[in-house]
Design a protein around this nucleic acid. Structure first.
Length: 499
RNA sequence: GGUCCCGUGGCCGAGUGGUUAGGCAGAGCUCUGCAAAAGCUUCCACAGCAGUUCGAAUCUGCUCGGGACCUCCA
């Protein structure tokens, strides 16, 4: 059995994964800012790290997965309004900040359920950890790496860089930053342009504000993650995840803060997912090219040719390695939809098949199946290569379908191999990839409708028996228009699939 | 401007020295009352140029093109 290797952004190489405490993994992933609706781009890290969470558990680790909710809003440090993002929007929508936060938190959780993402072990909020953040800032000041000015506190990046490798994660060179940082508000308070805010004094119009040793204000952008990760995972933990766009300055700053407080780079392995692009450009608010998740699921967006099921989106994302960009397109989504359906149908058939005992009567096939199953784990161990693992599974689809349609002898595989095949599909599709049938997740069916459908199938069968194809075709075609596809199987049974 | 990344067949995408990736779409065949599904076969690649090598999509250099970060950002 191969061992798990992960690409560590911090060292820029693939490394064998070893957890700090044997059998346990601590993982922190930057969560959503709940000041607005999540879009397709946001879905990627949460699905990526959900699968990583699931895979680590599958490997037998006890995982504490911490994913924060940023509900204090990030201060738009250089923004002209000098207002908290959430506060700004709250004024527009005439809502209390916490009402807005609650609304979008709920919507976010709804989206996570649509994707069948497991709940994180702990989901701390920034507003719930103001005290911890203030304590951490105090520690940094005491250590001499931060200074207070006019009620704000800044981290002394220049001093830090003299003693620690600032910029290692994101490949920055501190002198370059000097030249490229823009000339903006609040800069005159800082000793150096590279310095970043730990605490900001709140201007009068700022709704969200807390009392601190430096006056009324709110936490800087990066401190919440450091404070909450430290609190729940300790001074050094195993995995820190997030989008590549967070490497600088967010994660770089986290490293600096935590290093001063805990004397360690906070995480051993830094994992970063790449962006979802649309027409080759990153999907993002500032590019004005976002597709919200609600729009994606409903199809209600000019760029969408149809609605896409959350499972289609999940599968679409998993068909690409998490560190590659993924380009959105209707054709690509539709391909994912069909591919998933084929894979899922085969899975369904596989679970219904019975092995007669004995075998393998086809030794070469048996061998190939065993090898392919082994490859699945090998590919997941290779930095969570879900794309390759899915390709492995597609290699097995013709085998399954051929067994089902009796092109292969029922005992072509040994009973042992057959069980392994069934188990591998269940484990990977459901437990690791977190896929589920579209009907199950839709939850639309009920027993009564099922019975009605069975009745129609029965009537159609009778019509076919007396060669009344007009009737049988009418039933099939009209059901198809309603999104129910009937498929006549060779053995006389009727398969149902939902479009 | 600085730092970094990428350019694979009609579309989406694996792959880092010698092997069919895979999915979807297209073509043909088998099966079928028809259809769908399924199975088999098949077409279409590695941006360009030069170099290293017995051998490169894979390494090196250059050219062209695209992108990310440097500011909120998944």
């Amino acid at each position: 059995m191969s061992s798990l290797k992960v690409y560590n952004s911090y060292t820029r190489q693939k490394e064998t994964f070893n957890s700090i405490t044997p059998g346990h993994v601590g993982m922190y992933v930057c969560g959503p800012t709940v000041s607005g609706e999540s879009h397709l781009g946001h879905a990627r890290p949460f699905i990526t790290f959900d699968v990583i969470f699931r895979y680590l558990k599958h490997q037998g680790y006890k995982v504490r997965y911490v994913r924060n909710i940023t509900d204090a809003g990030h201060f738009e440090e250089e923004g002209r309004e000098a207002e908290d993002k959430i506060a700004t929007k709250a004024q527009i929508e005439k809502l209390e900040p916490m009402e807005l936060v609650t609304k979008y938190s709920n919507l976010f959780h709804w989206a996570m359920r649509q994707f069948n993402n497991l709940d994180p072990s702990i989901e701390p909020t920034a507003t719930g950890h103001i005290v911890e953040q203030i304590e951490m800032i105090k520690t940094i000041i005491e250590a001499g790496y931060a200074y207070a000015v006019n009620g704000s506190v800044y981290f002394d990046v220049v001093k830090y860089a003299q003693h620690y490798p600032y910029g290692k994660l994101s490949g920055r060179i501190i002198d370059d930053l000097l030249e490229t940082t823009r000339d903006l508000d609040g800069q005159d308070e800082k000793r150096a342009k590279q310095d970043f805010a730990l605490w900001k004094a709140a201007p009068a119009e700022h709704i969200m504000r807390w009392q601190s040793p430096w006056g009324e204000g709110f936490p800087g952008w990066h401190i919440e993650c450091s404070a909450m990760a430290t609190k729940y995972l300790g001074g050094q933990f195993d995995i820190h995840g997030g989008g590549m766009d967070l490497m600088f300055p967010h994660h770089e700053s986290e490293i600096a803060q935590s290093t001063i407080c805990n004397h360690h780079v906070p995480a051993r392995y830094w994992l970063h997912n790449n962006m979802i692009t649309i027409n080759g450009k990153k999907m993002g608010k500032s590019y004005n090219n976002v597709i919200k998740l609600t729009e994606l699921f409903s199809g209600d967006h000019p760029l969408l040719e149809q609605a896409y099921h959350p499972m289609t989106v999940r599968f679409f994302i998993l068909q690409t390695h998490y560190r590659s960009t993924l380009d959105f397109g209707n054709e690509a989504l539709q391909a994912a939809q069909k591919g998933l359906r084929r894979l899922w149908d085969a899975y369904g058939h596989l679970q219904n098949l019975q092995h007669p005992g004995g075998g393998p009567s086809d030794k070469a096939l048996d061998e190939k199946v065993l090898q392919t199953i082994a490859l699945m784990e090998e590919h997941m161990n290779d930095d969570f290569n879900t794309a390759k693992t899915l390709a492995d599974m597609f290699e097995l689809v013709p085998v399954i379908n051929s067994l089902r349609e009796k092109r292969y002898a029922a005992d072509a595989l040994s009973g042992d191999t057959f069980i392994k095949l069934q188990l591998a599909f269940k484990t990977y599709l459901e437990d690791i990839f977190g896929l589920q049938s579209e009907q199950a997740s839709a939850g639309a069916d009920n027993d009564r409708l099922d019975a009605v459908l069975q009745l129609l199938i029965e009537i159609r069968k009778e019509a076919k028996t007396r060669k009344d194809f007009a009737t049988s075709d009418k039933i099939r075609l009209q059901l198809q228009e309603l999104g129910v596809m009937l498929k006549d199987e060779k053995d006389g049974s009727v398969g149902i699939s939902y479009l």
